[in-house]
């Protein structure tokens, strides 16, 4: 007879090897599939919010809306001068005419710049972190009375609010899935306890501690949970990649922001491990709590 090399392997044979035959691994696979999708959504939205914040939140646009071209040009120069020396501003750039034409082309056609139609002067302003746009309005009041300051962060506020809400929703879904997974493990552990009650009684009478008995269950349940989790992760990863390819095909700058970074992928890959740890802890808690009712 070939003896087991370690105690743990012999201990594990106290119960029959029935991994992946019960419903628990499959239920955990489904839970993990949904959990990874929710987490991927949340992480992608986090990435989008970060990109949006980095690209637009510290930006403002100053428009000089003046029908008289000379006055408009004079106010534009004054405004650029004031903004260049303002403490809240880190960079100032007048939007060139060619860029303006490109911006307006979809609405007004390609020969707009040659007409008498008065066009506002646009000045892109990059604010220092934490700086207030209101200070710019105050500063420009005298130098460029026709100036209007557009705060991009205010414009984006509804969108960032929506993204924040969706991120919370994703986090809530992940937590709900984790709770459901824990509940499944608790039910499975209770079932296993009932099935193997006679073996547990014998072990107890031979001097096994609650932790030794719990270890039997938690190891088996951990392996089942890891296998189910990896299965769920594989399925969800395929879906995430497919959705990413579809979104990339749209060619939208906004959609391009919704992507997963390498750390985000690593976080998703760690979810089955987290699920396994959760399953182990749930099993241990359930078994120890049940054993406490036995002498």
């Amino acid at each position: 007879m070939r003896l087991p090399a370690r105690f743990l392997s012999a201990e594990s044979r106290l119960m029959p090897d029935t991994r992946l035959v019960g419903p628990m691994p499959w239920v955990i696979a489904i839970m993990m599939f949904l959990m990874v999708l929710a987490a991927a959504g949340g992480l992608a939205l986090t990435q989008a919010a970060r990109s949006m914040g980095g690209n637009l939140a510290d930006q403002a646009t100053v428009q000089i809306v003046e029908a008289n071209a000379d006055k408009r040009e004079a106010q534009a120069k004054s405004a650029i001068d004031v903004l260049s020396h303002h403490a809240a501003v880190s960079a100032v750039r007048r939007v060139p005419d060619a860029e303006m034409q490109k911006l307006l082309e979809p609405w007004l056609g390609d020969e707009i710049m040659g007409t008498d139609l008065p066009m506002p002067v646009l000045i892109d302003v990059t604010l220092r972190p934490g700086a207030s746009v209101d200070a710019l309005s105050q500063a420009l009041r005298n130098a460029a009375p026709a100036a209007r300051v557009d705060d991009h962060s205010r414009t984006l506020a509804p969108l960032t609010g929506l993204i924040a809400a969706l991120r919370w929703l994703a986090a809530a879904l992940v937590l709900l899935m984790a709770a459901a997974t824990a509940a499944v493990v608790v039910l499975a552990a209770r079932g296993a306890l009932n099935t193997h009650r006679s073996t547990i009684d014998v072990m107890h009478l031979l001097g096994a501690t609650d932790i030794q008995i719990a270890r039997l269950f938690q190891r088996r349940i951990a392996i089942d949970a890891l296998m189910g989790g990896l299965l769920g992760l594989a399925g969800a990863a395929c879906v995430v990649v497919l959705i990413g390819m579809r979104m990339a095909a749209l060619g939208s700058e906004w959609m391009g922001m919704v992507s997963l970074s390498v750390p985000a992928w690593i976080s998703l890959a760690l979810l089955p491990v987290a699920g396994m740890v959760l399953a182990m802890l749930s099993a241990r808690w359930t078994v120890v709590a049940a054993l406490r009712r036995i002498l």
């Binding site: 003896l3 105690f7 044979r13 106290l14 006679s198 073996t199 014998v202 009478l205 031979l206 030794q212």
Partner: peptide, 24 residues
């Protein structure tokens, strides 16, 4: 008797020692 059905005779006899932490 209350032998553990999934263990061999050897492992059943060894069980109290294993539970007490005796090495293989």
């Amino acid at each position: 008797f209350r032998l553990v059905p999934y263990l061999s005779a050897y492992d059943n006899v060894a069980l109290p020692l294993r539970l007490a932490g005796v090495s293989e």
